[in-house]
Each structure stands twice: as C-alpha cells, then as structure tokens.
Computed example of a mutant assay.
Amino acid sequence: MYDIGIIGGGTAGMTAAIYGQRAGKKTIIIEGGVFGGQITSSPNVENYPGIASVSGSEFSMNLLDQAVKLGAETAMEQVTGIRDEGSVKVIETAGKEYPCRSVILATGVTHRHLGVPNEERLTGAGVSYCATCDGMFFRGRDVAVVGGGSTALQDAEFLSNYCRKVYLIHRRDEFRGEDSIVKRLESKENVEFILSATVRDIIGDQAVERLIVNSKKTGKEFKLDVSGVFIAVGQIPKNEIFADVVKLDADGFILAAEDCITSRPGIFAAGDCRTKEVRQLTTAAADGAVAALAACRYIAG
C-alpha cells in the first residue's frame, strides 16, 4: 500500500514525490514514457529560479535522483485507469495494480504539432513549442510564430521584445485570440502578420534556416528566412482515461484550482494537466508541492 500514487513523471510529479517523501509518506511515480516529460527535449533551461542554465535532461535527472534518494519508488508502466474503493484508490496498469491512499494526477500535456517535414528533427534546434522558455535564445534574430489563438498572440508579443523580426503565421483571415493583443501587435514595427497561410516545410541542416509557406489565397509558396519557429497551435491533455473519475473541462483538462483539489476526494491534479493560466516549470513544481501536501492532509483525516 502506498500513501501517494503519482501518475506522471514530469516536473510536477517528481516534485510531488520529493514533498511526499519528506513528509514521511510512501510514494510511487508511475510513468509510461520518459521521466522528465517534454522539458527533456530542451537543450537549455534558463528560466528556473536559482539555476542559471541547465539542459532539460539534466534538470529532469536531478529531480528524479533527488526523489529516488529520498525513497520514492518508480515504475515504468502505462496507467489504464483508477478504481476508487473509498479509502483506497487503485491505480491500474496493463499488468499490475497499485493500491494507494491518495493519487496525484500529473500527466502533463503534449503540444499539438504541425506535422510538416523536419519538425521533429529540428525540435530543440530552432523549432520550439514554448516562447517563454526559449525566446531569449533568439535575441536580435528573425523568428516566426505559428497559430492564431491567444497563446500564439502572447508568444508573438513576448518575442517582439527581443527579436529583430517576428512573423505571425495563421491559417485563417482573422485571429481567434484576444483582440486587445492583436491591436498591440499591429502597432509594433517588427511584427508582420501572414494570414491565410500554412507552413509546408521547415528547412535547415543543423538548425532552422527558413520556412516554406503556402498562401491559401493564391496557392503559391514563398520562403521566410528565420532562425526559429514557435509553434502554438494547441495543447493536448492526456486525461481521457480519468474522465469517469474526475471532472474535466471542455478541452480535457482536469478541473482543479490552485489548491490542486479535484472533484474526487483523495485525488489531486498537478502541473499542466489541470486547468490553469500559466504552464511553466516553476508552476509545475509549485503544483507538485501543493498537491503532495494536500494529499498528506487528506491521509491525515
């Protein structure tokens, strides 16, 4: 029997394990993919307080090492569901069951990809899904943002403060994001809108060098010389298997506020998988701590 079963081995999940172990609880982290999550693909992390620069993989391995040294157990298995038996929550995998007094869902999200040539190969070498994380590496250079929602608009605004030129590429004639941000971007001399257009290819040998863009109006293709492309076309939570256990919003994120408490007693949500405004390493770590301490209070009575 575990005190805290943690589903997901990203920053939130591993932080939860650290706090749980330090509180004297028996914890296990169950991860179906790679410990560390998406941050492991980042060559440099420079926005985590107290750490000037570290690779994403090193950051993740340090977290995992800290959790394991404190006594946290790990399992590399794909979770298939949770069975609520009142005071006991049973985490189910393909080949095993893990009875727990409480559960923390820290499943994270996956970024929706464009699915164009070289996107995967150049991820971390000019292709990014987080402007806040990687934007500073492109100071004084030309970049592109792909997307039309508020996240894409916010990314373009953030990058315009550091980059020489920011192209904002959207497949429709109008943006779906906040009109106030659109107006601010329109006033910036180094921001150019490219509407009714899609990225067809990302070109570069060792790093991004240019984009091949297709105009939906003319059907013609043209090149954009850029050093980076920031893709902001949506995030996909992986919470479908928990829909009968906790409440999700319309986009599939777990309904939980800053206290990380879900609709189901004894089950908590931490990190990018829950409803929240800011999804960063710092907020994931904060959620992990909050969720673990909330689980400890739940166990205590």
Rank of each mutant, 00 (worst) to 15 (best):
G32E: 00
K276S: 15
S187D: 15
R22T: 03
V290Q: 08
L211R: 00
V79I: 07
C133W: 13
S102K: 07
E221G: 00
P117G: 07
F59H: 02
G177M: 11
E73S: 13
K220Y: 10
L293V: 07
V103L: 05
L122P: 07
V208F: 09
T275S: 10
C260D: 03
C296T: 14
G37H: 01
S180K: 11
V226E: 00
S87R: 12
V199P: 03
K25Y: 15
G24S: 08
D272P: 10
E92M: 07
Q21I: 12
Y48T: 08
I181E: 05
L114Q: 05
D173W: 12
V191P: 04
G36K: 00
Y98L: 11
I194W: 04
K216P: 02
G147T: 09
I7W: 01
Q235S: 12
Q154T: 14
K26A: 14
I236L: 15
V233R: 09
E73D: 15
G5F: 02
I236N: 14
A152S: 04
K247E: 15
R101F: 11
I236V: 13
R200Y: 01
E157S: 12
A292Y: 05
G140T: 06
E277H: 13
A270N: 04
A12Q: 00
G148R: 00
I241T: 12
I299V: 08
R83Q: 12
G234D: 05
T110Y: 08
S57C: 08
V199W: 04
A152I: 06
A125Y: 14
E119G: 10
L255P: 03
D225G: 01
P117Q: 10
K183C: 00
V45K: 02
L105D: 03
K188L: 15
T15Q: 14
D249F: 04
C133H: 09
G252D: 11
P99R: 14
I267S: 03
D225C: 01
A72V: 02
A289L: 01
G234C: 10
F222N: 02
A152W: 02
G32P: 00
I18A: 06
S160C: 12
D155Y: 11
Q66M: 13
A197Y: 08
A292D: 09
Q66Y: 09
R171S: 15
E189D: 13
C273E: 12
E85S: 11
S215D: 11
L168H: 01
G252P: 10
G71S: 09
T198R: 07
E186F: 05
L63T: 02
K223V: 15
S60K: 00
G271F: 04
I267T: 06
I236F: 06
A284N: 07
G50H: 03
I39Y: 08
G81V: 02
K25G: 13
D142W: 03
R279S: 08
G266W: 15
G13N: 00
N190A: 13
L185E: 05
D142R: 08
R141G: 06
V245E: 10
N47L: 08
A16S: 11
G252K: 12
Q154W: 11
L122D: 09
I241V: 14
S53R: 13
T282Q: 02
T151M: 04
N214K: 14
V199H: 04
C260P: 00
A52M: 13
I202P: 01
L195W: 09
L185H: 03
Q21H: 12
I30T: 00
L293A: 06
K216D: 09
